[in-house]
């Protein structure tokens, strides 16, 4: 769950930067699934970056999983990040690490046992259909495969908040359908999920409450 109150964000600083979000207020409860909609440049990626703690809001109050971000020290923010999963448009995979190591990275940062890590990685990679590509390097995979690896890494530690930026744009219809069913299953288990997309067809096929942005302003919040 998260709460935003009067949040603004500008690239390059609040005084001289380019405004990406203006006075956005949102309140999303635990276990909710929300579509994040809007045209290019509407501020969707900025909102997801604020929610995944990649950037700090220029102004306003951000509270994620009950933690007030601005008042929290760096070590506390690091702990909070371990409860947030993020799927980025560019996948964010390390090119010199194998698929296995990329997916295992969040668990290793949590100091899990190697045997447990191996079990979890094999289970999630089987689910995304890439259990035979564990030793491959990301550049050796197709775009769709890389996206599935990024999704596997984002959900392997069952985050309390999951944000995904266009997670289906490199997937075929069958894989996208599997992914959406998994997202809904995670939401049922208590994960709060926000998915940004341009794909009207998938939004229509999997209806859910929406957050819509336009020119950085919140124009619709159907919670």
């Amino acid at each position: 769950m998260f709460r935003l109150h009067d949040v603004s964000y500008a690239y390059g600083g609040s005084q001289t930067g380019v405004a990406a979000l203006s006075h956005v207020s949102l309140d999303v409860a635990q276990g909710e699934f929300r579509w994040l909609l809007g045209p290019s440049g509407a501020g969707k990626s900025s909102l997801l970056s604020i929610l995944s703690l990649e950037v700090q809001a220029s102004s306003g109050m951000v509270e994620i999983l009950g933690v007030p971000v601005r008042q929290t020290r760096r070590a506390g923010l690091a702990r909070l990040r371990r409860r947030i999963g993020a799927v980025k448009q560019d996948f964010g995979l390390l090119p010199d690490m194998s698929v296995f190591d990329n997916v295992a990275l969040p668990l290793r940062l949590q100091h899990r046992a190697e045997a447990e890590i191996a079990h979890e990685v094999h289970a999630i990679m089987k689910w995304v259909g890439l259990e035979n590509r564990l030793d491959a390097l990301p550049p050796q995979l197709s775009g769709g495969e890389q996206q599935r690896v990024a999704i596997a890494r984002a959900v392997i530690y069952r985050p309390a908040l999951l944000v995904a930026d266009e997670p289906t744009n490199a997937l075929d219809e069958r894989q996208a359908g599997r992914l959406m069913r998994m997202f809904h299953r995670l939401a049922e288990l208590g994960t709060t999920i926000v998915v940004a997309t341009h794909n009207d067809a998938i939004v229509a096929k999997y209806p859910a409450p929406t957050i819509e942005l336009l020119h950085g302003h919140l124009v619709r919040d159907h919670g």
Binding site: R79, L80, R81, R82, G92, L94, P106
Partner: peptide, 16 residues
């Protein structure tokens, strides 16, 4: 820097 940015985003502390 790319790897550091990534593991930072995944929750690695400064001390780690």
């Amino acid at each position: 820097r790319q790897a550091i940015g990534l593991i930072h985003a995944l929750g690695a502390t400064d001390s780690y």
